[in-house]
């Protein structure tokens, strides 16, 4: 049951040599799970999954996918190895139709399989079928996110990695996107995502990691994490009341 798909161990990564943003992070994702990475701004959440996806240089540590070492494989190889990444922004080709966006992603599939796979995506995302001739740049935020996810799923990845799929979406679309991810998991796809919207992400997630200063500081079942005092301390950046805090309050210094 607990077959691990993705293992990230002691990963150190960053854009500049000698300035790591991810500092020894370790996470595991089991088959069929939704794993959420939370953390305060600047904790290195996005850098962590971008490093996993081959987009940020890795200086130490390992990434294993189904037991295969995929550490620092080039981004265009990652998708062939079974790791599909959905960036936070600019995740569709804006001046191509929805259909061409899907077709271009089929480049690594056998040619004869592509049409059927595109039809399967249309069946899973009927909105995209209705908009197949629309330029991706003219889609609504939610539909664009759908297209970005469909683009990643079309090649049957072993794990789907998403960077803040709800960023910049209106509340209506946020719930739509999380419902979509929940449905995708039900179809057997393993998901790793980074989210600012902790409450919505924990509602659909199985497990969560809290990342602080480039290292995972806490791991828990998603259902219990929201009520865990640790989340207030680490994720929201608040310190529990200290003994001297009362005096600060008296002088009006406490925030």
């Amino acid at each position: 049951m607990n077959e691990t798909v993705l293992v990230v161990s002691d990963l150190e990564a960053g854009y500049e040599p000698g300035v790591p943003i991810v500092r020894g992070a370790s996470i595991t994702v089991n088959k069929g799970e939704i794993v959420v990475v939370l953390g305060p701004n600047g904790a290195g959440k996005s850098s962590l999954i971008k490093a996993v996806a081959g987009l940020v240089p890795i200086s130490r540590g390992k990434v294993l996918l189904d037991g295969q070492d995929i550490t620092a494989a080039p981004a265009h190889i990652m998708i062939r190895l079974g790791l599909a990444f959905v960036p936070q922004t600019e995740n569709v080709f804006p001046r191509m139709s929805v259909e061409d966006n899907l077709k271009v992603a089929c480049g690594i599939l056998e040619r004869r399989l592509a049409p059927a796979r595109i039809e399967e995506m249309y069946a899973a995302f009927p909105d995209l079928l209705r908009q197949r001739r629309t330029r991706a740049g003219n889609l609504s935020g939610g539909q664009r996110q759908m297209l970005a996810v469909a683009r990643a799923l079309i090649v049957h990845p072993k794990v789907l990695v998403l960077d803040e799929p709800s960023a910049g979406l209106s509340p209506k679309f946020v719930s739509m996107v999380f419902e979509m991810l929940s449905d995708i998991r039900k179809s057997g796809v393993t998901i790793l995502l980074v989210e600012q919207n902790a409450k919505a992400a924990l509602a659909i997630g199985d497990r969560a990691y809290v990342l602080v200063e480039g290292k995972e500081r806490h791991e828990a079942a998603a259902s219990t994490l929201w009520d865990d005092p640790v989340i207030a301390e680490l994720y929201l950046g608040q310190r529990p009341l200290r003994k001297d805090s009362a005096r600060h309050t008296e002088t009006g210094g406490a925030a």
Binding site: L55, A75, H76, P87, F93, P94, V104, G107
Partner: peptide, 21 residues
Amino acid sequence: QTGRSMQAMSQNPALARIAGI
């Protein structure tokens, strides 16, 4: 497919890589 890959590269090179181009 070659042409679509070229379009993809011109519109968003980073995403083109991610999409396996």
